[in-house]
Design a protein around this nucleic acid. Sequence first.
DNA 1: ATTAATCTGTTGGAATTCCAACAGAAGGAG
DNA 2: CTCCTTCTGTTGGAATTCCAACAGATTAAT
Lengths: 223, 223
Amino acid sequence: MKKYLDVLKTVALFRGIEALELLPLLSCLSANRAHYEKGQTIFFSGDQIKQFGIVLSGQVQIVQDDYYGNRSILAEVSQGHLFGESFVYSEIKMLPVSVITSTESEVLFIDCRKLAAPCAKACDFHSRLIQNMLNIISMKNISLTQKIEFVSKRTTREKLLAYLSVEAKKAGSNHFSIPFNRQELADYLFVERSAMSAELSKLRDEGVLKYHKNQFELMVPTC
Amino acid sequence: MKKYLDVLKTVALFRGIEALELLPLLSCLSANRAHYEKGQTIFFSGDQIKQFGIVLSGQVQIVQDDYYGNRSILAEVSQGHLFGESFVYSEIKMLPVSVITSTESEVLFIDCRKLAAPCAKACDFHSRLIQNMLNIISMKNISLTQKIEFVSKRTTREKLLAYLSVEAKKAGSNHFSIPFNRQELADYLFVERSAMSAELSKLRDEGVLKYHKNQFELMVPTC
DNA sequence: ATTAATCTGTTGGAATTCCAACAGAAGGAG
DNA sequence: CTCCTTCTGTTGGAATTCCAACAGATTAAT
């Protein structure tokens, strides 16, 4: 497990916990590790799970199969990130998704009940862990809500402006950069890259905004 | 406060806690109540909040104003439900939304730090409350993820089939009912009601499904 | 039973997106 | 520098959605 200390230090769930304290903590949590080949299934749709996972190496995907057998990828989870935590804490009886490895992977499992329960050694990491867990799930919540707000707009133009508005607000300036290239932004907003590019040009021509690469500037609205 | 006991009993955050224990618990949490007229602002965009709210009566809206001053409603929160909890636990410095009352309302505020901290009287409700809070936020998380999966589809037909697929799976049968009428379903999927109705008819004509009102039946795929 | 209100399905034209293909720009590797 | 790859913008036609309006069906109210 020591070989993964560098990864564990970056895991949001362990934020505020010293590297030296990590290994004892993991044993207190009865964390157990597993190795998977590429394409193996970690959790099966329909399972009831009590443990969430942490990707120590490799990458896993959250996938969903529809009534007709078509599989879609809901999320990709990379090194240092959690998966399954929302399903565990929502206490659903049947997992509506499957979790599979997209590469050879090493995964750490932690039982959600161990996280809350004050342990025999009365170690006081538990409240820290709970806070971190609430933090992780809440932040995901906010970004999901935000994304839904964007994609609720009916046209590419509206989606773009909604997104750029929020980015400007976040940056606290009408001049800001975004963390996506065109293709990634189009994927994020669920629109065509080509149509989006065209719309961006149009917005530029209309004087609504300026841009260069991933640097954007929203013009002041002339009411 | 006693007059709101009936509401408090239905609040998911207090699940598993006896009615008799509620009032002492609230005082332990230093919960405080406030009254608002219709249209008043409870939280302002830009605020840093440490308290989340519970709607005791009336209704509040989570709204977001874009760069151009256009306001959109992200959510409506009705009696017995929480608001602001994701923002509180995500520990963001500036609230990206405002919370306003859409009717005259009575709101209960609870400080997130009181929820975790074991109190002087060592009351053991805290771990229950934390579990409930994790449960609430996780469930919202799952439904948001699910919704994003639906609206990620590009056409009305695909959105419908993705949604109905999941409903069928949830019901454990290809015959099931949905909790929406046509307009509500269209709003949920971010499509036109009329276009959706047309698409439903088409799917019926093609033999993909049958329906009557909010009762649906997915035909077995003939591969 | 009659009226009113709501829900649902249909349709035609306008607007928009999607798709595929191409071309210029930018950047990296050899 | 040249080649190659990736990123970005453009364009035209096909497909889809949106919008508005209307009509039948259902439900609720009087």
